[in-house]
């Protein structure tokens, strides 16, 4: 059902955890449909220097969260924002059709963390 790449990220997820002094936190999904992703980011000079995630969900949900942390780290915020859910699925060598919509939310979670960071910095500046 799942590609080897998905199973690799599912069994050895990268960057699991929280960042206590995160600059931005994003959360998407809801427990009703069975998938919740939360992403924490550290930002220095507009570059994501650290990223961590926690996910409640199926194998695909955990693997997409894990792989997006690898895709996003070291990227500028603008670059990171351009990562699509489709790109996440491709990085995992594909997802089963049923999982494309319900469990492929990692890019949305990252965007939400970046928005949160921008909101935080905007308030600090003013």
């Amino acid at each position: 059902m799942y590609s080897d790449k998905v199973m690799d990220h599912f069994t050895n997820p990268r960057n699991v955890g929280e960042i206590a002094d995160a600059d931005g936190v994003g959360e998407v999904g809801n427990s009703r449909c069975g998938d919740i992703m939360k992403i924490w980011i550290k930002v220095e000079n507009d570059v994501i220097t650290d990223i961590k995630f926690k996910t409640f969900g199926c194998g695909a949900a955990i693997a997409t969260s894990s792989v997006i942390t690898e895709l996003a780290i070291g990227k500028t915020l603008t670059e990171a924002e351009e990562i699509t859910n489709q790109a996440v699925a491709s990085a995992l060598e594909g997802l089963p059709p049923l999982k494309m919509h319900c469990s492929n939310l990692a890019a949305d979670a990252l965007k939400s963390a970046i928005e949160d960071y921008r909101k935080n910095t905007a308030t600090t500046a003013s």
């Binding site: 799942y2 199973m7 599912f10 069994t11 069975g34 998938d35 409640f56 969900g57 199926c58 194998g59 949900a61 955990i62």
Partner: peptide, 14 residues
Amino acid sequence: KYIEGESLLLNLDL
């Protein structure tokens, strides 16, 4: 509580 069934089944399968 706090975990999802499919990821549990995948782990059991492993």
